[in-house]
Write a protein that binds this DNA or RNA. Structure first.
Lengths: 321, 321
DNA sequence: CTGAAAGCGCTAACAG
DNA sequence: CTGTTAGCGCTTTCAG
């Protein structure tokens, strides 16, 4: 039909006919059927976004970044949650790929063989996000968590701390947290140091857990002079504990977290942290998908490595700069 | 083909043929094309979720609830963001409805005429969430924000506070915040009281803004004896300000927020608040969609009103209970 | 510039 | 139990 041409303002149609069609369409409350359209044209304006969950404050921000840039295109995000479970990821991917999306944005570089195979076979742009330490399927955008861990360890050592404790989550499948930890201990080892005590948690309010864990670890190992937290929320909990119990921070005890969550900016003291560039990662990933979906870019395999800056805040700098 | 039957394990197929088909499908890395399937069967396992944004901590939790229950079904969420803009909502809805989803979950009861018309004409379950104060298109699940505002005002008055200040956001289009405020002032009026001073913000870190606004309003109106915040984050900022400056809370000054964000549970003192039941709202909405999509329930128009409880925390109770 | 016709890859109904 | 057939509502190509 000519109608199709009008609705997609494609091809030459006389102004008269166009107006007529538009009028009728509106009066009928006509909503096109993209399913049929997609089937016929094999073009789908959906972008699959596969992330672990929505409940940890970091992925919502990634989504915000993605949403921002897709907004300027005709692409729409479809989200799926994996709960950090590889089998779940596989299902979700299968499900989503069966809609033949224009691209896939997936968190992490660790996937089951089947997932990798599907992604490779899909023939669409795939952007793995958050992490760059590993082998990518196609494009990647993220930070090096290993490097981030090293980086902070070095800063801690440089400030003269040497009895270091680590507090983190129990998440066995959080590869990024693990890589940070590996980079961290590796850098300590280079200076002949090691983590002297550790404490893990799961579930519950991170802030409260952070207080609790900090109290625990200090009770057990009172001579620690630095606590490295795997995320800012528990770090903030630790900071609150120290403020309440009058521990001299950063003199007697230094603290650092990870993520750079803006949300904590109003605390009495700023926790040392490292920005994980979440929004920017979302934006960059979406930009790659958009550019490739529109044919603006044809090659794949782009690598975008963000360089998170260490923010000393008020809990890491022992010596005046 | 019989193949179709196997892949959807439908109809009677002999075990032998089934296995053969499955084997071939796997070896080929076959991923079905849901577009064609949907077109042929006019069944789509997508649920449209239309929310303002992902950046305010409340919608991610709603998504979590939705994701949780859809997980046990074969339904998948597709999200669209409106940024609190009615025209944007209209576009997003149009876009999503053109995929003929099995249901729509949309935040709020306020929509453009066109949006309402589309939703009504779609012939699929529509669940409006968050708010129940207004006329629904089909099903609703949420809380009464007006009632929540009244409720907290009454509690404040009961505790003997009477010089009350309000701190909130500038969001003209946040109808729910406005309804809370209306309920709040209405209840005050009933007792011959009114809001004595107000302060608004936009953008930035809510915690930091809360501190700043609290300092401002108290500088301007030092005789206020209660501050009601439109959300917990700015409320927490206010609480921190009070703790730092040594203001007696809740003796000389009472504080209350709104939302019940679990995240703040580790603060030195618990802010009075009211749980907005976000996860539960997400779950209930998804349950309605799931039940109706599966034909388990046929009638529409269900109304689920959550009853948020007032949590006194440590900043509202002046008198011993 | 506008119409007609042929599919897109599947499901549903119907025969065998 | 298994094969065949006719669409689903569009886009695309090809004639007018």
């Amino acid at each position: 039909m000519t109608v199709s041409r009008v609705l997609r303002n494609r091809g030459d149609v006389s102004a008269g006919t166009r107006d007529k069609v538009l009028a009728v369409a509106k009066s009928l409350g006509y909503v096109p059927n993209k399913i049929a359209g997609a089937l016929a044209s094999s073009r789908v304006n959906l972008v699959a976004v596969v992330i672990p969950s929505m409940s940890n404050m970091i992925f919502p921000e990634v989504m915000t970044g993605i949403g921002e840039v897709l907004d300027d295109t005709d692409l729409q995000p479809v989200v799926g949650f994996t709960n950090y479970l590889p089998e779940k990821e596989e299902n979700v991917l299968y499900e989503m790929l069966s809609w033949r999306p224009s691209g896939v944005i997936v968190a992490g570089l660790e996937h089951s063989e089947a997932s990798r195979a599907m992604l490779k076979a899909a023939g669409i742009p795939v952007v793995e996000i958050m992490d760059v330490d590993g082998e990518a399927i196609d494009a990647v955008v993220g930070i090096s968590h290993r490097r981030a861990g090293r980086h902070i360890a070095e800063a801690i050592i440089r400030q003269g701390y040497e009895r270091i404790g680590f507090l983190g989550t129990k998440m066995a499948l959080d590869y990024r947290a693990r890589k940070r930890f590996e980079g961290f201990t590796e850098a300590l080892a280079k200076h002949g140091l090691e983590v002297m005590d550790q404490e893990f948690y799961e579930g519950g309010s991170a802030l409260a857990k952070g207080r609790e864990m900090t109290a625990n670890i200090l009770a057990r190992s009172p001579d620690l002079d630095f606590l490295y937290y795997s995320n800012d929320m528990i770090g903030a909990g630790g900071l609150i504990h120290c403020l309440e119990t009058g521990i001299d921070v950063p003199g007697r005890l230094g603290l650092a977290g990870f993520n750079g969550v803006e949300l904590l900016e109003g605390l009495p003291r700023r926790l040392a942290t490292m920005d994980s560039e979440r929004i920017e990662i979302g934006r960059a990933a979406a930009r790659i998908i958009a550019a490739r979906a529109s044919g603006e870019i044809t090659e794949g395999g782009q690598r975008v490595t963000m360089e998170p800056k260490l923010q000393y805040g008020d809990t890491l700098r022992r010596y005046k700069a």
